[in-house]
């Protein structure tokens, strides 16, 4: 599995086009974090950072694999079909982990540096971002394995836009405080394990899809 993860990392960060889009994305969000920092954007950045970047690696590697028809060669490697899928999910966990770490640093900066939110509020939003990124990756990855790169990317972008829209409308309908309320913090005890279960189910479903594809 290490080989597949390494290949995907090369495809994401060695190929200039893909590296450039990561740098552009990071610069854009980084500058936005510094210059437009309100209660509203704090929640948006903290959640979106891990949600979008966590599932980005598959988009790039899927594109490169389809171009080179790498799947045909990959299946001759000493790996089971389940391990091939698992390696994709492991990479998403690594990337989600890194982006969650960055968003945690950002959240803590908002507590201790900019003094925009309390520690409980920051951790609640950060907890929601863990759930959001796991569920988002779960949905997007199944779409990639089922429908391929083209439709997968369309769904990835569409899902990100819908998510942003849902965030905007939820702040109008329920108020922005609903994201940082005590109720939400309590609900996280249910939401976190639920999102882990969804992630595991997504992985199992993707394995079945992949097996069917190569049968």
């Amino acid at each position: 599995m290490k080989g597949i993860i390494l290949k995907d990392l090369y495809e994401n960060f060695y190929i200039k086009k893909n590296l450039a889009s990561y740098i552009f994305g990071a610069l854009f969000i980084g500058l936005a974090m510094i210059f437009i920092n309100t209660y509203y954007t704090f929640i948006l950045y903290t959640m979106f950072l891990s949600i979008i970047f966590g599932s980005a690696p598959l988009e790039a590697s899927c594109e490169q694999d389809e171009k080179a028809n790498f799947g045909k060669l990959q299946i001759t490697f000493p790996l089971t079909k389940a391990e091939i899928v698992l390696s994709k999910y492991l990479l998403s966990l690594i990337c989600t982990g890194i982006s969650l770490l960055i968003s945690l640093i950002y959240a803590l900066a908002n507590v201790y540096f900019w003094r925009l939110v309390t520690l409980r509020e920051a951790l609640t939003v950060w907890g929601l971002s863990i759930c959001g990124s796991l569920v988002f990756t779960s949905v997007v990855y199944v779409c990639y394995f089922l429908l391929g790169k083209k439709i997968g990317t369309f769904i990835y972008v569409a899902a990100a836009i819908i998510l942003a829209g849902l965030y905007g409308s939820s702040t109008v309908l329920f108020g922005i405080e609903s994201y940082t309320s005590m109720d939400t913090a309590v609900r996280l005890w249910f939401l976190l394990p639920a999102s882990v279960v969804i992630f595991a189910l997504s992985c199992l479903l993707s394995i079945q899809i992949y097996k069917k594809k190569f049968s």
Binding site: G3, I4, A68, F70
Partner: peptide, 26 residues
């Protein structure tokens, strides 16, 4: 080892990188 009629590695990679990847595969 299976060899097809064209390379199935990403065309943006180099032989050195292919070697590095395969060292983790086999």
């Amino acid at each position: 080892a299976v060899i097809f009629n064209d390379s199935h590695y990403d065309i943006n990679l180099t032989p050195k990188i292919i070697g590095h990847i395969l060292s983790k595969v086999y």
